Simulated assay, not measured.
Amino acid sequence: MLSSDELALLEAIRESGSLSRAAARLGKAPSTISHAARQLEGRFDALLFDRRRYRLQLTPAGQLLAQEAARLTLDVARLTQRVKQVAGGWEDRLRIVSDEIIEFDTLLPVVRSFQALGSGVSLRFGHEVLAGTWEALREGRADLVIGATNEPPAIPKLRWHELGVMEWVFAVSPRHPLAKVAEPLERETIAAHCAIVVADSSRRVDARGYGVLGGQATLAVATMRAKILAQRDGLGVGWLPRARVAALLKRGELLEKRTADPREPNTLYAAWSGEHEGRALKWWVEQIRQPRLAERLVRGIDSFA
């Protein structure tokens, strides 16, 4: 590892092409710079400076060292900034995992506001589905989860906030056989048709799913948007967030069907660990507690409008 003085010496000689100019730039005597240059060559046991020409040049070995020195200088500066950042109460990074049911578009204004703070905290976003969202928090892969469903599980020092309630609609394509079946649809009638589901991302064996009846065939997709498209195309049936398919229902591209066993609304949660609450996490929690943002997160954006 080069010292800061050695890094500065290499940069000064590389940019000035002269020991005297490098000395002036560094505020040192030329003899001191010359001695330091020879010491650096002795340390690496390599010829780093070509002294045969009027203009002092770096040898290929010297060029490599100078390039790496520049990179190291930048790394040291970044490290210094990160140390000051953490010492000031900000995290080095904040990992935010949203349930796939939350559309990232709704978080963009919050991300923009956070970046305007100039905190230096790196944000890392990911998404999970159903039990996988809580699991990310439990296993330390997330500092904050947004849009988790079902009751908060038993996690040490877990803290949470209710975002709101998401309403569901059982919807089918006008071309699907269930479109012409009399309402309310019975369980046996629904079970005879393929259910479109968003696959639970939990790594555990007890991964779960919503709206699937015993023995019912399923088509698992990765996102809620894919589920909506599959149902619009008549590939299967299932429950969809009412607000996100309002336009498709209005245009008749999806039909709402009453069922004998209606689905209860889901409460969505934001959750985090109270063990390590830095300034970035506290800021995000404060934003998420705002009723207007919580409502926008729960309703989502009707991208089919």
Rank of each mutant, 00 (worst) to 15 (best):
M1K: 12
L2F: 01
D5T: 11
L7H: 03
E11D: 14
S18C: 07
S18Q: 06
L19A: 07
A22R: 04
A22M: 05
A22V: 09
A24W: 07
K28M: 11
P30R: 12
I33V: 15
H35Q: 13
H35E: 13
R38L: 14
Q39V: 10
R43A: 11
R43G: 01
F44T: 06
R53S: 12
L56W: 00
Q63L: 15
Q63R: 14
L65G: 07
R71W: 06
R78N: 14
R78G: 11
R78Q: 14
L79K: 12
T80L: 05
W90A: 07
R95N: 11
V97M: 08
S98K: 13
I102C: 07
F104I: 12
L107N: 07
L107K: 05
L108M: 13
L108Y: 08
V111E: 04
Q115M: 11
L117F: 07
G118L: 09
G120L: 04
R124P: 00
F125T: 08
L130R: 12
L130F: 07
G132K: 01
T133C: 07
R138I: 00
E139A: 11
D143V: 03
D143H: 15
V145F: 00
I146A: 04
G147C: 03
G147S: 04
G147I: 02
N150D: 15
P152E: 02
P152V: 11
P153C: 09
L158N: 06
H161P: 03
H161N: 10
E162C: 02
G164V: 03
F170V: 10
A182N: 11
E183A: 14
P184V: 05
E186S: 14
H193R: 12
V197S: 05
D200L: 04
S201F: 00
S201L: 05
R204A: 14
D206S: 13
R208L: 13
Y210E: 11
L213T: 05
G215D: 03
G215K: 12
Q216Y: 05
Q216V: 10
L219E: 13
V221Y: 06
T223L: 02
R225Q: 14
R225D: 15
A226T: 08
Q231F: 01
R242M: 08
A243Y: 04
R244E: 12
R244A: 10
A247H: 04
A247C: 08
L249I: 11
G252P: 08
R258H: 08
P262H: 08
R263K: 14
R263T: 04
E264H: 12
A270G: 04
W272E: 08
E275L: 10
A280M: 07
L281Y: 02
W284C: 06
W284I: 03
Q287M: 10
E295P: 00
L297S: 07
V298K: 09
G300K: 04
G300S: 02
G300M: 01
G300N: 04
D302W: 00
A305L: 03
